[in-house]
Nucleic acid binder design. Structure first.
Length: 702
DNA sequence: CAGTGAGCGAGCTTCCGCTTGACTT
């Protein structure tokens, strides 16, 4: 008797195969195996939205393996993830492999021997309601994306796209930009009183004037107030101490991991996911490949009891019982959108400390692993307790206040510092020991002018956070969404922030006018509502699609009719075509902006955009210019290329390397310091750098 | 991971979500 079990991920397949006996073969399907075709709509709208599925191009080898193993097996069990997409994957496999066993579906939420054995012994039928919900979602996205996009090609510009998720993402960025532009900064002033005490100066902030919230809109108001406050007596009206408890944060979901990796490690979402994938697939540790973290695409903070116990044991052994809460912490997911197929992101063994693994990991792997490990261990630790001291001082009908907190018990912060600790310590220094009733001499009144700030622009991380809160997108798509809106040039990234382009504004405005429902942030939530009903068997998937599509078809026809063709006038550059003398204009190509002759198609002259730098090439005296490599990375070269072949990754400075004579470059290190580097890879200064950083890491390996 | 670098481009595009490699675009 031989049983074939199909799971989604190859890593998972290996793990499970090792847990089961010889009579089981476990193979991966690597995600979906069938989908709507790429080149056509693939939905028969006239006939109840019947989908036309084909096997996904490029999946041939995977599918062949599954087919062969299926032939050899006496029983096939489908163990794709226990969520909506997973159910659909199971159904497609069942269809494709022409399986005849009704009870073919097994589900488990954690990869432990017990959970898998139990599931294997209890196969169930495929949940067709779930499959239908997925199908409705898939078809809706196809109808929207594949009908609005071509409209944009016709009316605006070829190659554009629109969709339920990406269009809302761009909208958020455009709306925020508008908010920033329309923002009216309001002036306000802050007043501090510096008081003398025998234990040092006490700085208190003005909070109330005549029992009302202090509101000082201009300098005049401040000066008036200062007149009133100068010759008053400053009396400490209260000193209170209160304990404040801070709970640890739950272990990582995908989106929170991306946010934290961005904030603390300056890692982009894509890089974070690549690195997490490496940790998940496994690293060679003493000749054995070991998966170091649980699955990295999850929306759940759930943790298996086994892992929870491990963490508790570790905390007790390593930090003592004081640091262990009486009961294990359970993190429940409040939001309805959570599909909970996977656990939270956590180390596969807390015994593998970041320090112990350091010799086996690359720098980003180590940093990310450390973040995941610490977040998880801390999530099972005791609360931190702070003592908050608040001092209130009254003078001339005004109330001043200073407060600071002191760590009484570090609890989980011993392991995971959530970034608020330093702030607390700083605040504490302001609080000097004084007593209620003390009258303190006034040293000075300080004031400072401030303006209210507009909301910040979105970063990758904050956009992902917002999308997740709105229930838009899934763990597997957060990072790719950013790529999509960047590659359409709807937005650009500068430093860490996302700025809308004119094209982004244009498309969002058109969408708002002609497809207000689709580009509404609530659209996905209402769709999810309907999908839930389909899953519960309370709604029919065809009916749900019909109710969506009938009005949508009208909207679409109206847009086809009414939308004006947008003529995008290309931006004229200050350069002149050397072939025909006409001005050059900026155009957008497959790989970004470039300069083209405005005489196109009569003159087909094009050239790359060259950004000047103000630095001279020391080899030939030409200007150093900024260019982009094929992969999009910025580098610096001499304008006289190819005659002069000087190139560097970092901005050159006008100084030569004392060792090899190559023009040096300057780079800002992570700590903000400027570092001078010789771009010549063969320069001895490079070799000494390498031996300093590389070799010790390797010798640690023994 | 570490090495990586100057084209092309202006007609056949596009959705979302599941999963890894491929070096095709």
């Amino acid at each position: 008797m031989k049983t074939l079990i199909i799971v989604e991920s190859p890593t998972k397949a290996k793990t499970i195969e090792n847990m089961l006996g010889m009579e089981y073969v476990v193979r991966p399907c690597i995600g979906h195996v069938r989908d709507l075709p790429k080149s056509t709509m693939g939905v028969d709208i006239e006939h109840d939205f019947a989908p036309h599925y084909i096997t996904i191009r490029g999946k041939g080898e995977v599918i062949k393996v599954l087919k062969d193993e299926a032939k050899k097996a006496d029983q096939i069990l489908l163990a794709s993830d226990p969520d909506r997409e997973g159910e659909a994957i199971a159904w497609h496999l069942q269809q494709y492999l022409r399986m005849d066993n009704e009870q073919c579906r097994i589900r488990f939420n954690e990869i432990t021997k017990a959970a898998i054995k139990k599931a294997v012994e209890n196969p169930q039928p495929i949940d067709m309601h779930k499959v239908e919900a997925q199908q409705a979602r898939r078809i809706l996205d196809r109808l929207v994306g594949y009908q609005i996009s071509p409209l944009l090609w016709k009316k605006v510009k070829k190659g554009l796209s629109a969709g339920r998720v990406q269009s809302v993402a761009v909208r958020l960025i455009c709306d925020r930009e508008k908010e920033i532009n329309d923002f009216d900064p309001e002036e306000y002033w802050i007043v501090y009183a510096i008081l003398q005490s025998d234990k040092g100066n006490l700085v208190v902030k003005l909070v109330k004037i005549d029992n009302k919230k202090a509101d000082l809109p201009n300098e005049e108001a401040v000066n008036q107030l200062k007149q009133r406050l100068l010759n008053q007596s400053y009396q400490v009206s209260s000193v209170s101490k209160k304990d404040r408890v801070r709970h640890p944060l739950p272990p990582f979901t995908t989106s929170v991991m991306q946010q934290e990796a961005s904030r603390r490690l300056a890692m982009r979402a894509k890089k974070t996911m690549q690195t997490a994938q490496q940790l998940y697939e496994g690293i060679q540790v003493d000749g054995v490949v070991t998966g170091l973290i649980s699955y990295m695409r999850t929306d759940s903070t759930r943790v298996s009891e086994e892992a929870q116990q491990q963490a508790r044991d570790y905390v007790r052994d390593r930090y003592g019982a004081m640091f262990l809460p009486a009961k294990p912490r359970v993190y429940s997911s409040k939001k309805g959108a959570v599909q909970d197929a996977h656990e939270a992101i956590r180390p596969t063994s807390v015994q593998r400390t970041p320090q112990a693994l350091k010799p086996y990991l690359s720098v980003p792997q180590y940093k990310l692993y450390k973040l995941i490990w610490e977040r998880f261990v801390a999530s099972q630790m005791a609360d931190a307790i702070y003592e908050v001291t608040t001092i209130e001082v009254t003078a001339g009908g005004c109330l001043f206040r200073a407060s600071g907190s002191n760590v009484k018990f570090p609890g989980y912060t011993q392991v995971y510092n959530d970034g608020k600790i330093e702030q607390d310590q700083e605040d504490l220094s302001k609080v000097v020991p004084v007593h209620e009733g003390d009258i303190l001499p006034l040293l000075s009144l300080d004031d400072s002018q401030h303006f209210t700030q507009p909301p910040p622009r979105f970063s990758e991380a904050s956009l992902i956070k917002t999308l997740e809160e709105l229930g838009i997108g899934r763990p597997s798509t957060y990072a790719p969404i950013i790529d999509t809106i960047l590659s359409r040039f709807y937005v650009v990234r500068e430093e860490k922030l996302l700025y809308p382009t004119e094209l982004g504004f244009l498309v969002v405005d058109l969408m708002k006018e002609y497809f207000p429902d689709i580009i509404n942030v609530e659209f996905t939530a209402s769709m999810e509502n309907n999908l839930d009903k389909i899953e519960e068997g309370e709604a029919d998937w065809v009916q749900v699609l019909r109710e969506f599509y009938e009005p949508f078809a009208v909207t679409l026809a109206h847009a086809e009719q009414e939308m004006e063709k947008v003529v995008i006038e290309p931006e004229v550059s200050d350069q002149v075509c050397e072939k025909c003398g006409k001005p050059m204009v900026y155009r957008m190509g497959r790989y970004g902006r470039f300069l083209a002759c405005s005489g196109f198609p009569d003159c087909r002259n094009t050239k790359a955009i060259i950004v000047p730098t103000n630095v001279k090439c020391l080899a030939c005296g030409g200007d150093i210019v900024e260019r982009k490599s094929r992969s999009g990375r910025i580098f610096y070269g001499c304008v006289n290329y190819p005659a002069c072949r000087y190139v560097a990754w970092d901005l050159p400075i006008e100084e030569k390397c004392p060792l090899c004579g190559t023009q040096l470059t300057s780079k800002t290190a992570k700590n903000g310091e400027k570092v001078i580097i010789c771009p010549n890879m063969d320069c001895p200064s490079r070799a000494s750098q390498k031996s300093k950083t590389k070799k010790p890491a390797k010798t640690k390996n023994k």
